[in-house]
Design a binder for these strands. Structure first.
Length: 314
DNA sequence: TCTATTTGACCATG
DNA sequence: CATGGTCAAATAGA
């Protein structure tokens, strides 16, 4: 199909541009004395912005490819789940939203809404109650409406909408959160709570195979320890493996060495890896690039390249 | 019987 | 008038 072929070509171009810029980025950190500091800072800023834009474009291409391919046709399934604010949704990420018309009923608190893409839309640490379902124009799946279970008990006005965006074996959902929770009813550490660990944690899962929110955490970009292009945010274990393996209930530290040496891609999908005797798949999340150059990056370029390539081209 | 979900109707908005 | 968000009666399930 020409469409997929062109898109793959575009994706290659974006990756190439990204790598090109990335390879030149270090030069700007060592030429402060020859050139004016402001110039260097400006160049660095522009590079960071270019990297951010390319990263954004790449994620959109990934997403569109997975959506256009649909099922078995989706040869390069998206592995990049990204989080962005409403301002992003109205701007750079507009392509993602292009299939959906903006709501004509304007919510009074719309400015507080937040949009994320995730493969675990129900796993955010809050208790929700479904109150509606609607077929939305231009989408293949119905949109589900949820409100906080404590709406009447505690007057919590939080709502969320879940819109499935792709039907692959790892479906992606767009989740729109409206209003802040006022109920203090998180069941566990919230999925979006930042954690202060130098390495990503593997998430555990409960007996029914759902991902536990405990370790499915966002990584704090400000910690300055994450790789510039991608970060391993979560690793979800196969439910049967979880049930059979008792030690999975505690946090597990993942190192890139571990990924490079022991995680190998399996046949059934780009994101599926075999980690020793445990089947797992890795999701890339949080596409936002750090604002400052990382000074204490624990991952070497080779490690990052290995991870990026294996995840993006499978 | 209670609670959660489903689903058609209603309503606000552009 | 079309669309999307919410309501509430009907239904399902524990």
């Amino acid at each position: 199909m020409a469409y997929v072929s062109d898109r793959d070509g575009a994706m290659r171009e974006v990756v190439q541009a990204y790598e090109l810029i990335k390879s030149h980025q270090p030069h700007f950190q060592f030429c402060d004395k020859e050139q004016g500091l402001e110039t260097v800072n400006l160049a660095q800023s522009l590079l960071n912005e270019a990297l951010r834009a390319l990263h954004l474009a790449l994620s959109v291409l990934n997403h569109e490819t997975s959506t256009a391919g649909g099922g078995a046709e989706g040869s390069s399934r998206s592995h990049m789940l990204h989080l962005f604010s409403r301002s992003y949704a109205a701007g750079d990420v507009g392509a993602i939203m292009s299939q959906q018309r903006r709501s004509k009923r304007r919510r009074s608190n719309e400015e507080t809404s937040q949009v994320i893409l995730t493969d675990a839309p129900h796993d955010d640490g809050y208790i929700w109650r479904k109150y509606g379902e609607k077929k939305i124009n231009g989408t293949h799946f119905t949109r589900n409406y949820f409100r906080c279970s404590y709406k009447y008990d505690r007057g919590c006005q939080a709502t969320k909408q879940i819109q499935q965006q792709s039907s692959n074996d790892l479906p992606i959902f767009q989740v729109t959160y409206n209003s802040e929770h006022t109920c203090n009813c998180t069941t566990a550490a919230n999925k979006y709570i930042k954690i202060d660990v130098p390495r990503p944690h593997l998430s555990s899962c409960n007996p029914n195979g759902m991902i536990s929110p405990m370790a499915d955490a966002m990584i704090d970009q400000n910690q300055g320890v994450l790789p510039p292009l991608v970060e391993v945010s979560t690793v979800f274990f196969d439910s049967t493996s979880c049930q059979e393996t008792s030690h999975l209930s505690r946090p597990y530290t993942l190192s890139l060495d571990h990924v490079g040496n022991h995680l190998t891609s399996t046949d059934d999908g780009a994101g599926d890896y075999n980690c020793g005797t445990i089947d797992a798949y890795i999701d890339l999340a949080q596409m936002v690039l750090p604002q400052e150059p990382l000074e204490d990056n624990p991952f070497s370029d080779a490690e990052l390249d290995l991870l990026c390539n294996s995840l993006m081209y499978n």
